[in-house]
């Protein structure tokens, strides 16, 4: 499998009134095409910063971020970003929410993208709700709409910033399966940032463990669990030992930080 995303010696500093903060230090990792990578790390280590750098919302201080071998720029339409909450606009109906990206960027193939949006909504049982306002939808349905809003722009790479953290546990497990299925069937590459190790293991082919600030890659765990869905993957016999391994890497890191 070829590499889609590559971080090469990426550093990121940000300025506060008191000091210059070194957030990311010589960060190196790769994500393969059509794979699912998760990034875990201590709170405040810079996980979301990594996604913001990929999305072009922040500018790296040094190093290279390559997508398909080409440097990412701030207007890169190859990247789709899904946030912690669905952030559906309550004054727009589902169709207007889903086609927001088309409205903003006015692509040449807008009609094709609208047809694609329509097909995604039909495929994931949301088409009947296109004229409804987001408040009429359940938490899980809202997250599916948010994902479709991102997919409509046909991004090469999907960035998921703890997209399930605002959901209750049961809904979270179900939506995890839904989102995973959508990403796999649309043959997308995804980078997930999460605090939840179980979620990272059940969804990913690769888990990248970060150190505390300044974040460096502390450990990379390749995964090949049995199971079609994240929920079924949790039943893999190696799931527990993988959880322990990543937990130890993280807790060592936490202890180091606290000491």
């Amino acid at each position: 499998m070829s590499t889609l995303l590559e971080f090469k010696d990426v550093n990121f500093f940000y300025q506060t009134k008191d000091a210059e903060i070194h957030a990311l230090k010589d960060l190196n990792f790769t994500v393969d095409k059509e794979s699912f990578a998760s990034i875990v790390g201590p709170s405040g280590c810079g996980k979301t910063t990594i996604l913001s750098l990929i999305a072009g919302l922040l500018k790296k201080s040094s190093g290279q971020i390559l997508l398909n071998g080409k440097e990412i720029d701030e207007n890169d339409s190859r990247i789709g970003y899904m946030f912690q909450r669905d952030h559906l606009f309550e004054w727009r109906n589902i169709w207007q929410n889903v086609t927001l990206g088309i409205e903003l960027t006015k692509p040449k193939d807008a009609d094709k993208k609208k047809e694609f949006a329509k097909s995604l909504l039909k495929k994931y049982d949301l088409y009947d709700f296109i004229s409804s306002k987001p408040r009429a939808l359940s938490g899980g349905m809202r997250q599916r709409v948010a994902l479709i809003r991102t997919l409509v722009m046909e991004p090469t790479l999907l960035l998921l910033d703890e997209p399930f953290s605002a959901l209750d546990f049961q809904t979270r497990l179900r939506v995890c399966d839904d989102v995973y299925e959508i990403i796999k069937s649309e043959k997308k590459t995804a980078v997930l940032v999460t605090h939840d190790i179980s979620e990272a293991i059940s969804m990913s082919n690769k888990v990248i463990v970060l150190s505390s600030r300044p974040a460096t890659v502390k450990h990379v765990q390749m995964l090949n669990l049995n199971g079609e869905t994240p929920l079924s993957r949790r039943e893999d016999p190696t799931f527990g030992s993988l959880f322990d391994l990543i937990w130890k890497k993280l807790t060592n890191e936490k202890q180091t930080t606290e000491n």
Partner: peptide
Amino acid sequence: DKIQLMKSMHANKFQIFWK
């Protein structure tokens, strides 16, 4: 985060304000 979402979809300042 909503503003960041708009920026991630390449909205300009006017679009962020208007929409």
